[in-house]
Nucleic acid binder design. Structure first.
Lengths: 146, 146
DNA sequence: CTATACTCTACTATTATAATAGAGATTATA
DNA sequence: TATAATCTCTATTATAATAGTAGAGTATAG
């Protein structure tokens, strides 16, 4: 698994929308500014996230983006897989890989496969509700530390 | 972590050398043919592996490559890190990352960090002696199945 | 009607990946 | 000592992914 900038931006954006769930649409501009994401890049990412059903949009004057589902119904793993592709560390865990004469005797395959399963289990056990709660807690701590 | 073709080839080559440890040098040609690796690409990879001290070489007529250390002293993780870089799924686990205003409040960072630690633990617990044993076992099974 | 905001397609710059090419250096052995 | 086999080193290239940038178009609240 490799998280690209695109993936990183997508996750931060869904987290932001989760923190404001139920408060109406948020503009691309606000989302981009708050997470320090190039606005034109975020436009594309949001269109992707919309096509996958993670978010929906409102056009026009009081438009913006909002989550299509409750944060508790969106797993971290879903977003990661959608934006950055499969979790496995090497394509050979999948069938299409051409790099091995004999997959059945490849001792590495089992290892990559286990790493994939363990990573998947982690990111599929975390929802954006969890992440939003943690984000609130850690920002509370920061305020306290000041 | 992402295993590239280069990484995949390096691991297969070290495994081959582990399976023939103590039997004298093996030529690039043999290594390339047995693992189906482009020979000129493997030349470069072996020079890298040599510079890192994983293998040593003999030039001239009965030359070739051999392991610098016993297979039991080479961890899978060492080779992976050397060829394909750090294990973490995103650079933000490291300090140099510019994508976050405030790393301390980033809820994702902890998750990537845990995934990195768990992946590291897995690949650092496996040596090429282990892998060679497994490879012998699985090829034995294949023979039996015929 | 118009300002605000999303939509859509195309383009570009940079870097990584996966090689390929070829001349050079070393060594066993006939 | 000649030579064939083998490793060494540097340069070049093709393709794809990544990370944007650009700009014209569409929808809607007020």
């Amino acid at each position: 698994m490799k998280i690209t900038y695109k993936g990183d931006y997508a996750l931060k954006t869904i987290l932001d929308l989760s923190l404001h769930f139920g408060e109406g649409p948020i503009t691309i501009n606000d989302l981009a500014r708050r997470a320090d994401i190039p606005i034109k890049f975020l436009e594309q990412i949001l269109l992707d996230l919309k096509s996958a059903g993670f978010v929906e949009s409102r056009r026009g004057k009081i438009g913006g983006y909002l989550l299509s589902r409750a944060p508790s119904e969106i797993k971290l793993g879903e977003v990661v897989r959608f934006i950055d592709g499969p979790i496995e560390p090497i394509a050979c865990v999948d069938k299409s890989y051409k790099g091995c004469k004999d997959l059945s005797t490849c001792v590495f395959r089992n290892i990559w496969s286990k790493i994939r399963d363990s990573t998947s289990a982690t990111i599929d056990s975390i929802t954006f509700e969890d992440l939003a709660r943690r984000a609130k807690e850690s920002s509370a701590v920061v305020v306290y530390q000041i």
